[in-house]
Simulated scan of single mutants.
Amino acid sequence: LTRQPEVTPPPPPQVTPINDVLTIIDDDDTAEETNFASSEETGEDVVIKHIPVTVDEEVVVEDDIFVIVEENPQFPDGGTAGLLQYLGKNIKYPTIPQENGTQGRVTVQFVVNKDGSIVDVKVIRGVDPYLDKEAVRVISTMPKWIPGKQRGVPVRCKFTVPVTFKLQ
Rank of each mutant, 00 (worst) to 15 (best):
T80V: 09
W145E: 07
F165Q: 03
R137K: 10
L22W: 10
V112M: 03
G78P: 04
T23P: 00
G152C: 04
A81T: 08
N113F: 00
Q74R: 12
D64F: 03
I25D: 09
P147W: 06
A37E: 12
P73S: 07
C157D: 09
V61Y: 06
T102L: 06
C157H: 05
D64C: 00
G78K: 03
I25A: 13
E33T: 15
K89P: 00
E70M: 01
G116P: 03
P52R: 09
N113G: 05
S140R: 08
I96K: 15
T141F: 02
I51F: 09
V123C: 09
A81M: 13
V7F: 04
T34I: 15
K166Q: 12
V59E: 13
V161I: 14
Q103Y: 09
Q4S: 14
I124Y: 03
V123W: 01
H50Q: 08
E58K: 07
V55Q: 02
I146E: 15
T141I: 05
S117Y: 02
F75N: 01
P154H: 04
E44C: 10
Q168W: 14
T160A: 11
P129E: 06
P12A: 14
K89T: 09
V21W: 09
P9W: 03
D132V: 08
K114A: 05
V121M: 12
E58V: 03
T23K: 06
T102C: 04
V69H: 03
D20K: 04
K158R: 12
E99N: 13
V153C: 00
F110L: 14
E6W: 03
Q85P: 00
P13Y: 13
C157N: 15
K122P: 01
A37R: 07
E33V: 15
A31C: 10
I118L: 08
E134F: 07
N100H: 10
L22E: 05
L83C: 06
Q98F: 11
P13H: 11
P94K: 05
T107Y: 10
N35L: 15
K92T: 14
K133L: 08
L167D: 07
T34F: 06
V111R: 01
